[in-house]
Simulated scan of single mutants.
Amino acid sequence: NQIGIQASLPIYTGGRTSAQVRQSTHLLEQSQYDLLDQQRSTTQSVRSLYSQVRSDVLTVKARKQAIVSSRSALEATRSGYEVGTRNIVDVLDAEQALYQALADYASSRYTYVLDLLNLRQAAGIIDINSVRDLNESLKADRQVSLVLNDESSDELENVTP
């Protein structure tokens, strides 16, 4: 009768197992750092876009006021032209300033809409309802108008960004 135990124990494996453990540990650390970097980047992006949207709101309000001022300046220049203290070039310059103010207002509203959508996307809260609500706020009855009568100034007072 014979009883025996046979064991095979490699004396040297070249450190493959310990190298794989170290590599996996470093890959885990890298993934954790990448996650942290992405979280910080997203937070910074959302904060930046939030500040930009707040700035856009103020810009839209300022551009709306610029239209009112330009319209008032045009009316004063037209009155001066009728009296004879202004010439037609002054009237044309005032009209050009009004049209530029209207274009700047429309551009600032467009920028506001894009920045708001980007903010909602970065924050992860964009959905079909937010797009529908935004679309409702941009209906045809609230568009920027080039009409130079008193009705357009009433229309501008109803426009909100």
Rank of each mutant, 00 (worst) to 15 (best):
L114V: 14
K61E: 04
A66P: 00
S31T: 11
I67S: 02
V53K: 11
A94I: 01
T59A: 07
D56G: 01
S41I: 06
L35R: 07
T42Y: 10
L58Y: 08
T42E: 04
Q38D: 08
V89I: 13
D104L: 03
Y110N: 11
A106N: 05
D37C: 06
L116E: 02
K64W: 01
R63Q: 13
L27A: 11
R78Q: 09
A103Y: 09
S55L: 09
Y33A: 14
E95K: 09
E82N: 14
I88M: 07
Q44V: 12
G80F: 12
A76H: 06
Y99P: 01
L36V: 11
V83E: 15
Y81T: 00
E95N: 07
L116S: 04
A97K: 12
S108M: 08
R40Y: 06
A66W: 00
S108A: 15
L49Q: 03
I67V: 13
I67M: 05
Q39F: 09
S72T: 05
A62L: 14
L92Q: 13
A94T: 04
A103Q: 05
L27Q: 14
R47Q: 13
L35A: 09
R47V: 10
Q44W: 05
L92N: 14
G80P: 08
L28W: 03
L98N: 05
S41Y: 11
D93A: 06
V83Y: 12
T111G: 01
E95H: 12
R63K: 15
R109T: 05
A62F: 10
D56L: 02
V53L: 11
E29K: 08
V83W: 12
N87C: 09
G80Q: 09
G80W: 13
L98W: 03
L98P: 03
Q32K: 10
V89C: 01
T59Y: 02
A106S: 09
E95W: 05
S51W: 05
T85M: 02
R54D: 06
K61M: 01
D56M: 03
V68G: 01
L28F: 10
Y33N: 09
S45K: 10
V46I: 13
R63D: 15
A97M: 07
G80E: 08
L36F: 11
Q96C: 00
R54A: 04
A97T: 14
R71P: 02
S72C: 07
D90F: 02
Y50G: 13
V46G: 10
L117V: 13
R54V: 03
V57A: 04
K64E: 08
V89Y: 06
Q39E: 15
Q39G: 07
L27Y: 12
V53F: 07
D34L: 10
L28S: 09
Y33T: 08
D93N: 14
S55D: 11
A66N: 01
R63V: 12
Q96A: 08
D37N: 12
E29D: 11
Q52N: 15
V83N: 14
Q39C: 10
R86T: 01
Q38P: 04
R86K: 07
A97C: 11
Y50A: 15
A66Y: 00
Y99V: 10
V57D: 07
Q96F: 03
L92R: 15
D34S: 09
L27S: 08
T85H: 02
